[in-house]
Design a protein around this nucleic acid. Structure first.
Lengths: 143, 143
DNA sequence: CCAATAAAGGACAAAATTGTCCGAATAATA
DNA sequence: TATTATTCGGACAATTTTGTCCTTTATTGG
C-alpha cells in the first residue's frame, strides 16, 4: 500500500509524538531502535518530514526531533503520506493509466473509487494523538 | 496500489476476455497495442497468467491467448492480482511490520482493516464480464 | 519435411526504491 | 575556543521492479 519510506515515516512520527508529549526530544538513533528501521534511510525520511514542518529538528548535543505538543492532534496520517509519497495515492489511476478520468475512466475506475475515497477519509481523519493513545496503553506496537 | 505487472495483467486479461467472447485468439502484439504496454514485459506477465490457468496460450501461426468463454464471469480481479503479486495485498501489514497481528497489532491496524477488507471484497466480487460490458459500451477504456 | 509464425523462457539492462557512508554544518558545554 | 553530539546532505551501493533481447520450442500450412 505505502512505500517503505512512508511506513518508516509514520512509525517514526508516532514515536516522536509519543516522546514529545513528555517534552522529550528524540535522537535519530533512539527512533531507529524504537521502530526497528535502517538508520541512514530513516534520517533521509526525517529530513523530508522536517522540511515539511511535520517534525522539528535541532542539531548538536541534546538535539534531535520533536513535534509541537499542540500539533499532535492536528497532524494526520494523510499529512505524513503526502509529505513523503506525494498525493498520488489519491490521484493516480488504479490501473496506472495516465489519462484516466471521470470522462474517460479505466475499466476499474468505479470499483476503486469508493475504496480510494474511504482510504482518503481514514488517512485524513486519523491523527497522531489517537494512535499514540493505544501505544501508551500497550495495545499497539511500533515494532 | 498495484505493481505495474499487475496493472498490465488486469488490462491484458480484460482485452483477451473481450476478444475471446467473439471466439478470437489474440496475439501478444495486439494485446500490447490495445493496452499500451511494453511487449516483452507483458509477455512475462501473460506467461504467469497462463501458468495459473487464467489465460490459455497456444504457439504457432494463428496462436495467441484466449480465455474460456464460460470462465469470463468466473475470473475475478482478485484471481489476477493473486496470480501476479501474490496475496500480500490482503495479508501484509499496512505499516510493513512482519509480526503485526490481531494480538500484537501495529498502530494503524484497526484503521486499515476495513479498507483492506473492502478492497478484498471488491476484488473478489468483480469479474471480467462486468468490466468488459462497460468497455463494450464505450464507457471505459484500456488505454 | 520446410518455412513461417507465435509463445516460452533465459540472460541481460535500465530505472526506481531502499539502504549506506562519510564529511559538513550546527549547537551545547566545558 | 576546543570538543563533542547531533542533524544535514551529497555520493554511492544494493536490491527490487520494470523492461529488452534473443534463442528455443511448438504449431500450422504448404
Amino acid at each position: 500500500m505505502f512505500s517503505k519510506a512512508c511506513e518508516y515515516g509514520i512509525k517514526a512520527t508516532l514515536f516522536i509524538a509519543h516522546r514529545s508529549e513528555k517534552n522529550q526530544r528524540v535522537s535519530l538513533k533512539s527512533i531507529t531502535e524504537a521502530i526497528n528501521s535502517p538508520e541512514a534511510f530513516t534520517a533521509k525520511i526525517l529530513q523530508k518530514l522536517a522540511r515539511n514542518k511535520i517534525v522539528h529538528s535541532s542539531k548538536g548535543p541534546g538535539g534531535g526531533f520533536r513535534i509541537e505538543k499542540d500539533e499532535i492532534d492536528q497532524i494526520t496520517l494523510s499529512d505524513i503520506v503526502i509529505a513523503i509519497d506525494g498525493d498520488q495515492i489519491y490521484t493516480s489511476c488504479g490501473l496506472g493509466m495516465e489519462e484516466c478520468s471521470e470522462e474517460a475512466p479505466c475499466p476499474a475506475h468505479e470499483k476503486f473509487k469508493p475504496i480510494k475515497e474511504s482510504l482518503r477519509i481514514t488517512l485524513e481523519s486519523t491523527n497522531l494523538k489517537e494512535l499514540m493513545e493505544d501505544i501508551n496503553k500497550g495495545l499497539t506496537f511500533l515494532k
